[in-house]
Amino acid sequence: MKDSNISENDVITQPVKIAARNVQVYYGDNHAIKDVNVEIDDKTVTAFIGPSGCGKSTFLRCINRMNDTIDICRVTGDIEIDGEDIYDRKVDPVQLRAKVGMVFQKPNPFPKSIYDNVAYGPRIHGLARNKAELDDIVERALKRGAIWNEVKDRLNEPGTGLSGGQQQRLCIARAVATEPEVLLMDEPCSALDPIATAQVEELIDELRQNYSVVIVTHSMQQAARVSQKTAFFHLGHLVEFGDTDKIFTAPEDPRTESYITGRIG
């Protein structure tokens, strides 16, 4: 669609939101992430690209400690959000995840009504004092998820009855409803058709106004379309990180260049 317009957005320097230093991740004996250092800006879309199994999703899941739910996974090094170490023993992952929302590869609406799907986060975090406020939050989230007009007349129908693209936007709305500051997206378009993909991409660009968005993607075109910053991962290493335009036009590392030109991956 109008992807050229999107990527032409000016890159304005923003304060650092997420800082990772010397991050190592092990799955049992497997060293999955090797010594990653990266600084992710606020109100910016950052794309993680790289071949399958390069560790980009693993690293993304470190940022809201989703890896805690996997028994054999071990993380060392520092990841700071707003200067606070999220792996500090005092940090409750539950509170962290309220602040760092996540959207998954496959749309995963709960088997509940559309309304209850979106209201789930605000309810568990106690964001609304009464029904009216909750209605308001749900409506705002659905609007921000760019799906309000499609579902406003059937909020009580199950979320699983929507089409794939609608489901994914519902999941984004669900993540947005808890008022996060960072939004992590793990290949959010890989299960969607091109039209739905375009809708979601447009949405991601909108979301940049309020959130720091980190998106893992398989598609270099998508990274080029939606992101201002791009990080290239290869075999667990962060090979190169910089402005998207620069990565795609003048990569410094030969591995980045060969991936972008399609020789590896």
Binding site: N64, M66, T69, V94, Q95, L96, R97, A98, K99, G101, M102, V103, F104, K106, N108, P109, F110, P111, Y120, G121, I124, H125, C171, R174, A175, T178
Partner: peptide, 20 residues
Amino acid sequence: SLRDGSYGLGATHSETVRQV
């Protein structure tokens, strides 16, 4: 994926079990 979705929103384990 449903568990992930719930954890990703900051639900505790028991909230995930009871509500999802």
